[in-house]
């Protein structure tokens, strides 16, 4: 009788927890409220974005942050879906500044170079033109033909300085490196 041989089962790797991650978040303004969250889910059920996404769950992101599973948060594009409406913050019964904690997490993602391309694109547009979107030459001409004044030119010096202060230049440089 032929013996059936089963393929050896592959174990699921348990997630690595970084106990210091939570403290990294808590160092930033309003990030300290992360620790109080008791996972009631008021944030998620009040979130307008989560309603249209299968993956974006503010409560889950906060949970992962509390546990220090950074590899599941920082590279994830869902982190960037927050529309900053602050309903979650308003409705949280524990005064967790949910929207602000998410902002802190996005900043940490940026520091680690985990920024979605589109945001780098936007930032470099600002860096180069002062506008989030590049205005095509064609449109400038069209304005002229219909008698609209030209769009004001941004003071690139100041934009440059602001970006430098806010750490945005680094972000753009990381793009250039790519």
């Amino acid at each position: 009788m032929a013996q059936k041989t089963e393929a050896p089962k592959k174990n699921v790797e348990p997630l690595k927890m970084d106990p210091s991650f939570k403290y990294e978040v808590m160092k930033e303004h309003d990030g300290e409220t992360l620790k109080i969250c008791f996972q009631c889910g008021s944030c998620t059920s009040s979130c307008p974005t989560a309603r249209f996404s299968d993956s974006y769950r503010p409560r889950t992101i906060l949970r992962l942050a509390q546990l220090g599973i950074r590899q599941k948060i920082l590279p994830s594009p869902t982190l960037w879906l927050c529309t900053a409406c602050f309903t979650c913050t308003d409705r949280c019964p524990q005064d967790v500044k949910v929207a602000s904690v998410l902002r802190v997490l996005r900043n940490l993602a940026v520091k680690e170079g985990q920024t979605p391309r589109i945001f780098i694109e936007l930032a470099s547009n600002i860096y180069e033109t002062g506008y989030a979107y590049k205005i095509p030459e064609l449109r400038q001409k069209k304005r002229e033909t219909v008698g609209l004044p030209p769009l004001p030119k941004a003071s690139l010096d100041r934009v440059d300085r602001l970006l430098e202060l806010a750490g945005g230049s680094k972000l753009i440089k990381s793009k250039e490196a790519q």
Partner: peptide, 19 residues
């Protein structure tokens, strides 16, 4: 924890919004 209790204006039935 439900975020809101809504009411269907036609049927008057309530909807509890929760994750």
């Amino acid at each position: 924890r439900p975020t809101e209790i809504l009411r269907d204006p036609e049927t008057n039935r309530l909807i509890v919004d929760v994750e």
